[in-house]
Amino acid sequence: MNARTQGPAPVRWLRRNAVVLAGLAALVYLLLPNVVVMLFSFNKPAGRFNYEWREFSTGAWTDPCGVADMCGSLGLSLQIAVLSTLVATAFGTFAAFALARYRFRGKGTGNALIFLPMAMPEVVMGASLGTLFLNTRVDFGFVTILIAHIMFCLSFVVVAVKARVMSMDPRLEEAARDLYAGPFQTFLRVTLPLAAPGIAAGAMLSFALSFDDFIITQFNAGPSTVTFPMFVWGAAQRGVPVQVNVIGTAMFLIAVAVVLVGQFTASRRRSRS
């Protein structure tokens, strides 16, 4: 007879499900701000700040770009995120194959070089890269932001792709070679499709990281290159328009829809085969 089977039924139920209840409470903590952002996208605030509820309005949803410079900053963030994802995914995938598939002198150094950016606070990386650009008299702007974003996205792509490549069965590629596939054909028709989920995960991660980065960007941006997070930061000092919440809500809903559709089709494909 242990503690689990003692006491009246509700107490027993509570004891058995205490972990689940605590977990759900954590989930509420995690999602509460998203709910608030969503609710307040329908607010009509009294002043310049959208922190207190006043009345229901769909004004911001019908005019999402009604705030000066906001949609421009959104476009800039998208541009930078796409470009840095492309470069970081390509370079990171190459590096991941080198580190996962080969033994060579300097591999430890390579691994450390990939690991260190993830173990460094953003403010340190941002300030030191900014110091480099200041000392070499490079003008801050689009290019410096892009360089910075590729730099911090690389490591995450390498980690995602490397994990996938290391879990791949090398016998599949041997089989392809046994069936007279050349090295190029083997890579294109066997290795790449097998590694694709890892590459896709790395690309999505770096897109999200780049799109949402603020700290490193702030240290390496020019006066005319205001990304979306920098716009929000500026707005937090001057006054937050409701449209910021509209963008936040729209991004949230689109991304959740994409993920759910992806999961649904994946589970259907699995159940069919």
């Binding site: 989930l27 995690l30 999602l31 509460l32 701000p33 998203n34 608030v36 952002v37 307040f40 922190y51 207190e52 999200a208 799109f211 949402d212 603020f214 979306f228 997070p229 929000v232 930061w233 937090a236 937050v240 910021v244 919440n245 963008i247 936040g248 809500t249 991004m251 949230f252 689109i254 991304a255 959740v256 993920v259 759910l260 999961q263």
Partner: peptide, 24 residues
């Protein structure tokens, strides 16, 4: 798992500002 990652889909600055409302 999707719900754990979902908050990331809204910019973290916007979500941090939401705490200003919650804790007001």
């Amino acid at each position: 798992l999707v719900m754990v990652i979902a908050p990331f889909f809204t910019s973290f600055l916007i979500r941090t500002l939401a705490w200003k409302t919650i804790l007001s």
